[in-house]
């Protein structure tokens, strides 16, 4: 009998091949894909997130875990009925117009996806209209804005204005992140939250949706 609890640690430590093997054994024993996600995979991501918060893990450890999680999800998704997969929520993420930096934003997207959110990654140089369209098309509950420059962070306000103009402000929570922004800036422009790293972003996303 497979010791499925080990899957939590394989995910947390990013042991991709071990995770895939144990996942297949667990599936063969009749455990449902959704149970595997809820009981082991997400817990593995939460474990590495906790270690990161405690300074016992680094950004690459988060990524290794997210990579193992993604590989497991690639196995599980075809086994699940379309639309049956539970998600914590849908969010749209992008680097705002004028800014081309995306590695930090991609880390956040990867962690959010690994922790159970459906993530629509719009890439870089994203306009307010593109954010609005993506929110409408995907019925998103959160918009995540990223910027790396002091010159481009001000465009975040433009995005918020566009969201307000479209009557969506009460329907979506807005989170921001990136090197030049901070809680003070977040308060100033009236968003729902600011996070300084990928793990904090996951905690914040759950908080703004009242998941925990």
């Amino acid at each position: 009998m497979a010791d499925s609890n080990k899957l939590i640690e394989f995910i947390a430590t990013g042991k991709l091949e071990d995770a895939k093997n144990l996942l297949n054994e667990t599936l063969a024993e009749g455990v449902s894909p959704q149970e595997i996600i809820d009981l082991y995979l997400i817990k593995g991501m939460e474990t590495v997130g906790q270690r990161f918060e405690e300074g016992k893990a680094f950004v690459p450890n988060l990524l290794m875990a997210a990579r193992a999680m993604k590989a497991c999800m690639d196995i599980l998704k075809p086994l699940m009925k379309e639309g049956s997969q539970k998600t914590l929520g849908t969010l749209v993420i992008g680097t705002v117009k004028g800014d081309l930096h995306d590695i930090g934003k991609n880390l956040v997207a990867s962690m959010l996806e690994g922790c159970g959110f459906k993530v629509i990654n719009l890439g870089v140089d994203v306009s307010g209209e593109q954010f609005v369209n993506a929110v409408k098309e995907n019925n998103a509950q959160i918009v995540c804005l990223s910027a790396l420059l002091t010159t481009t962070m001000n465009y975040m306000e433009e995005v918020i204005k566009t969201i307000e103009k479209e009557g969506l402000r009460d329907k979506v929570k807005i989170m921001i992140g990136g090197a030049p922004v901070n809680q003070e800036f977040a308060d100033k422009i009236g968003v729902d939250g600011y996070s300084s790293n990928a793990n904090e972003a996951v905690i914040l996303a759950k908080k703004v949706l009242n998941i925990c």
Partner: peptide, 14 residues
């Protein structure tokens, strides 16, 4: 690397 979706390798390369 971005297109491949390998975020770990993308991060290392970056």
């Amino acid at each position: 690397l971005k297109k491949s979706g390998d975020i770990m390798k993308e991060f290392i390369a970056d």
